[in-house]
Amino acid sequence: MNKFHLVFLFLSFFFINSQDAIKVYYFPRPPLYTVDSKGNVGGIITDIVKKVFEDAKVSYVFMEAPSKRVEESLKVGDNACGIGWFKKAEREEFAVFSEPVYRDNKQNIIIQIKKKSVLPAAPTLVEILSSGLTLGVIEGFSYGGWVDDGIKKNKPKIESAVVDQLRLLSMMAGDRCHYTFISQEEGEWALQSDKNLAANLTLLPVKDAPEGNLRYIMFSKGVKKDIIDKVNISIKKITKK
C-alpha cells in the first residue's frame, strides 16, 4: 500500500468520524461553561458532560452558539445537543432530554446596589416582580418553571436582549435594567471576577425559592436513541461520584 492510499484511508476515517460526532452546543456562561485564552472549553457543567460522553464512548465536538441558534439546529433534527438546559414542555416538542446532569444552587437575584433598598434583604418572588424595577432577561432563555411562571403572572417591566450573561450584567451596571435572576454560583463568580460589576451590583437571596433548577442535555430528535441511552447510563454513573 503506497503513501497515497494511506493518506486517503486516514482522511476517509477522519471524515466519517467527524460526520458521526455529535455537535455539543454551549455558550460562555461562567462558571457553568467557560472558554480559556487558548480556546479550551471548560466549566462546571461542561466538565461533567465531557466525562459523560467519554464514559459512554460517544464521539463529540464542542461548538459555541447562542441559545436561539441551538434551538433552531435541534428543531431541524441536526445530530446535535445543547448542554445544561432546563426541561420545558414546549422544548420537548422538538427535543429529547437526558437524565439530569446538574442541579443549580437556589435562585438569587443580582441587583443594582443603588436599587436594593427598594426590596427587603431576602425578598419573595412576588415582591421582586411587583417592585416596579426593570427585569433584565436574555432573549429565549428560561429561568426555570417557577420564575418563568411568576414573570407571566406578575408581568414586570422587562428589558430583553440577545446577549450572554456577562453582557446582561454589564447592561445592568450601565443602567439598562435593575436586576436579573441568577443562580448563586453564577452570581458569586461574576462579582468575584469583575471589579466594575462588584462595585455596582450585589446578590440577594430569594426567600421563597424552591430547590435549585435541574439541568439536562437537550438532544435533537435526530440523535439515535441508542446514543442517548448510553449517555443516560453514563450520567447516572458520573453524577453519583
Rank of each mutant, 00 (worst) to 15 (best):
A198R: 09
E127Q: 15
E93G: 06
I158C: 11
D148Q: 05
D148E: 15
N232Q: 08
L6V: 15
I128L: 11
L133F: 13
L129F: 07
A122L: 12
I83Y: 01
M172T: 05
F10Y: 13
R69M: 08
S59A: 12
F4M: 15
D194T: 07
T46N: 05
N154P: 05
G84T: 00
N196C: 10
I228F: 04
K87A: 07
R91N: 10
F94W: 13
D20G: 06
N17G: 11
G150K: 03
F10W: 13
S130Q: 14
I182P: 03
K195A: 15
S37M: 14
K207N: 10
G84C: 05
L11V: 09
F94E: 04
E72R: 12
K240C: 11
K230M: 06
I151G: 01
M63A: 11
I109M: 08
I151V: 12
T239V: 15
R167C: 09
S220M: 03
S12F: 12
E159R: 11
A121K: 13
I22D: 02
Y26E: 00
D36H: 07
G77D: 08
I110W: 03
Q184A: 07
V137C: 06
S59C: 07
S183M: 05
V96L: 15
V118T: 14
W85C: 00
T202K: 12
Y26K: 04
S12H: 14
L125F: 10
P123E: 08
R29W: 11
E92G: 07
G136H: 03
F27T: 05
P30K: 09
G212Q: 05
G212C: 09
I113D: 06
D78W: 03
Q19W: 08
V137R: 02
D164Y: 02
E71W: 08
L125M: 13
I83D: 00
V137N: 01
L168Y: 01
E127S: 12
S131M: 14
I158Y: 12
L119A: 10
P100W: 06
F53E: 00
W189G: 00
Y60I: 02
D229T: 15
K155H: 11
A190N: 04
L168D: 00
K240D: 10
I45C: 01
F4Y: 13
P31D: 10
L129I: 05
E186Q: 14
F8W: 13
G140S: 13
V70Q: 01
E186R: 07
V96S: 09
I45T: 03
D104Q: 09
Q112C: 12
E92Q: 14
F94S: 05
K50N: 12
S117W: 08
A121M: 14
G82R: 01
K236W: 09
G144V: 00
N200W: 06
N108Q: 13
V223F: 01
K75C: 06
I16R: 13
K221Q: 11
K195C: 10
R215M: 04
S59R: 07
Y216E: 01
C177N: 13
K241D: 12
F14Q: 15
E139G: 09
P28R: 07
V126D: 13
I228N: 01
Y143P: 00
I217Q: 00
C177W: 00
D164K: 04
H5C: 14
